[in-house]
């Protein structure tokens, strides 16, 4: 093999935390670390999230995946004592120090939570358009159109279109979660963060949402935290593997395409995890 080529290969191999450049980056993380009252919860996260791909954050519990995810829409602003170091760029803008307000950021980066949480006093329709309403959009035509589009994207339109005014609590768990996905999509964000969105759902509902992902990623870039690595293997294009270190702080071990993570990872710890040796 060509010496020069081998050097290039080695260069790539020896810097596992810098992914080779692929399409446009929707979000870029550079040296991101989150600490609470001085105690580091997760650190050293550097990777690029490519547009229109599903990137999953995997690792055993306590490795800081959710903490990292919540830094991406500045949810830690709500926690006193929380500090986010490093840089997080959304299409080139630093979300913490750049020229973007928190409210604007959150219209461009949406979030779906672990347990379905539709607003209990609102109907299906009102839940779906709640984001738009919050942001000052009142025109019924826009709201109606957005509701239909987002509910269709969440594969919920067919089953609810006749009962949009019904209270959201009437839906099953899986339907409620898809409503939450629709709610987040209604604002047409660039990125959708999902924090273990199927862990509270039954297998059938889980499957439905996983099937959604391939369609979803055509519209948004998805970053999903999952403790179920089979799920990660099924749905994601890229994987970031995090692990809790001895000082109880999570760190990024490896960031690669899903295929590589599961078949041929660089770090032995990644292999141990994917083979189920711990977790």
């Amino acid at each position: 093999m060509d010496q020069e080529f081998m050097a290039q290969v080695e260069a790539v191999v020896e810097t596992p935390n810098e992914a080779p450049v692929r399409g446009t980056a929707a979000m870029q993380l550079k040296g991101v670390a989150v600490s609470f009252h001085g105690r580091t919860a997760v650190r050293d996260c550097t990777f690029d999230v490519t547009k229109n791909r599903v990137t999953s954050l995997i690792g055993p519990s306590g490795s800081g995946k959710t903490t990292l995810l919540r830094a991406l829409n500045r949810l830690h602003d709500l926690t006193p004592g929380a500090k986010v170091a490093g840089q997080i760029l959304l299409e080139g803008t630093d979300i913490y120090r750049g020229d973007i307000t928190v409210t604007e950021l959150r219209t461009r980066v949406g979030m779906v939570f672990q347990r379905p949480n539709p607003f209990p006093t609102m109907s299906i329709y009102e839940n779906a358009v709640s984001g738009l309403r919050f942001n000052g959009i009142k025109k019924k035509s826009i709201l109606d159109e957005a509701a239909e589009a987002s509910l269709k994207s969440a594969a919920l339109w067919d089953s609810v279109q006749g009962r949009l005014k019904v209270a959201a609590s009437n839906l099953s768990g899986g339907e409620q979660q898809r409503l939450c996905i629709a709610r987040a999509l209604a604002m047409d964000p660039e990125v959708l963060l999902m924090d273990e969105p199927t862990s509270a759902l039954d297998p059938i509902a889980t499957l439905k949402i996983e099937e959604l992902m391939t369609e979803l990623k055509k519209r948004v870039t998805v970053i999903i935290v999952t403790h179920n690595m089979q799920q990660a293997a099924r749905i994601s294009d890229d994987c970031a593997f995090l692990l809790m270190g001895e000082d109880r702080a999570g760190e990024l071990i490896e960031f690669e395409t899903t295929e590589k993570i599961f078949n041929n990872p660089i770090d032995p710890r990644t292999l141990d995890y994917t083979l189920g040796r711990f977790g």
Partner: peptide
């Protein structure tokens, strides 16, 4: 949950 959901949608 509900608080975080609303803020994540951009509510003040």
């Amino acid at each position: 949950d509900l608080i975080e959901a609303s803020l994540s949608l951009g509510a003040t």
